[in-house]
Nucleic acid binder design. Structure first.
Lengths: 225, 225
DNA sequence: TGAATGGTATGAAGATTCTCATTATCGAAG
DNA sequence: CTTCGATAATGAGAATCTTCATACCATTCA
């Protein structure tokens, strides 16, 4: 589940990010209107948290643009002022929910869940890139029309990449996200090399249209070929 | 790290509990003065979150009793009213910090960390029961005077038990805490049986004074023998 | 262009973890 | 006290994951 936070108060943004990441969401952040729009033109997020008060424009405009772009995904408005007009206008423009600051983080989490549940009406949740399609919950993997299997670590790895297609992924990111606390700062990444090797072997064996490219000195990137 | 929450507002208590558990603390809760005192007489917690306004007495009294009991561990006062008197009195009575509602959860987390850091001045952090002593951070294990080693899962298992000595631990608790999401609701617990077996073999080989007892139909319990 | 350096890849060995089939144990019911 | 169904324990084997030694490749600098 990918969530985009558009919020200019950086410390609050940080709190949101950490909370959501603890809940295992994949989080991206944008500090302003422009960055938010840029990110949205590139990717589709499962949920967007949009602050109304942005330094470079009113968030409601962004909402209008999104509507034009016919982007799917849920959107929750966050607003410092608890104004009825904003709320009504926001919901009219297609927002799924409205939350006035300050709010409890637990409140936000439950809103996110309910909004996403509502929008999927219990449907399938797949993440895909190229001809590879992955269900984070059922662990199903489809390559073209054939179903495939992976071991746990290989699956985690593939999911992590496929949720960030075409992005640079460092080894320390992988270590922290997939191996956890004890591996987030080690002196060698042999265990990653080993799993990357295995996953690559699978992808080519499956004739997947995607591959894990190395970026020398930086990490890896999932690309379409 | 074990934390005790003494708080009568149950929904708020729940929010705290969930947040702290996400941060990997071991959390216990008490809804009132009496229960809190009872729990404190049994165990020593690394940190206590104490609400001042309790249905059956003022939390400051509990603080006085704790002082008499010479309990170690950090204590953070939580108060609905941001009253200077409470704050001063609480800190005088040995509380380590004071937090007025409402507060951001991230704020609480950072206070907890700083308070605990301050109180241990970077010292060793061991959890022990019987002649077994475990360091959750360095993964050191001491049985009497000899240092021992365990595999990762075995260590996690031992730590989980030793943090809850003499308490009933169900298999689903273990599955969720040690194996995570994917194993929290499965139809067989063979993987737990296997690890329990290995851990038991180690404990007896080490002449540990503790053992994992089975509780038929319920789970396990770490006892001293 | 050609070392030299450090990052990355690989197969195989080793360790750990899980699964399976089987056996043992418990507690309730007769 | 015995039997029976359910729960738990066990050893062995399979699958998975990590480590190791070695080979390969990209970049830099002479």
């Amino acid at each position: 589940m990918k969530i985009l936070i558009i919020e200019d108060d950086l410390s609050f943004q940080e709190i949101l990010r950490r909370t959501l990441e603890q809940e295992r969401y994949i989080v991206e952040v944008a500090p302003d209107y422009r960055t938010g729009l840029f990110k949205l033109s590139d990717y589709t997020y499962d949920c967007i948290l949009l602050d109304i008060n942005l330094p470079d424009g009113n968030g409601l405009n962004l909402l209008r643009e999104l509507k034009e772009m016919k982007k799917t995904g849920s959107l929750i408005i966050i607003s410092a002022r608890d104004s009825i007009e904003d709320k009504v206008e926001g919901l009219d423009l297609g927002a799924d929910d409205y939350l006035a600051k300050p709010f409890h983080l637990a409140e936000l989490l439950s809103r996110i869940k309910s909004v996403m549940r509502r929008n999927n009406h219990g449907g399938e949740q797949y993440v895909s890139y190229g001809n590879v399609k992955v269900n984070p919950h059922t662990f199903d993997i489809w390559v073209g029309d054939t179903k495939q299997e992976l071991s746990r670590k290989e699956f985690d790895l593939l999911l992590y990449f496929i949720q960030r297609p075409n992005r640079l992924v460092s080894k320390s990111m992988l270590a922290e996200a997939i191996w956890g606390d004890h591996f987030d700062d080690v002196d060698n990444y042999d265990f990653i090399y080993a799993q990357i090797k295995n996953l690559r072997k699978r992808l080519t064996a499956w004739n997947a249209s995607i591959e894990i490219a190395s970026v020398y000195g930086m990490g890896y990137k999932l690309i379409e070929n």
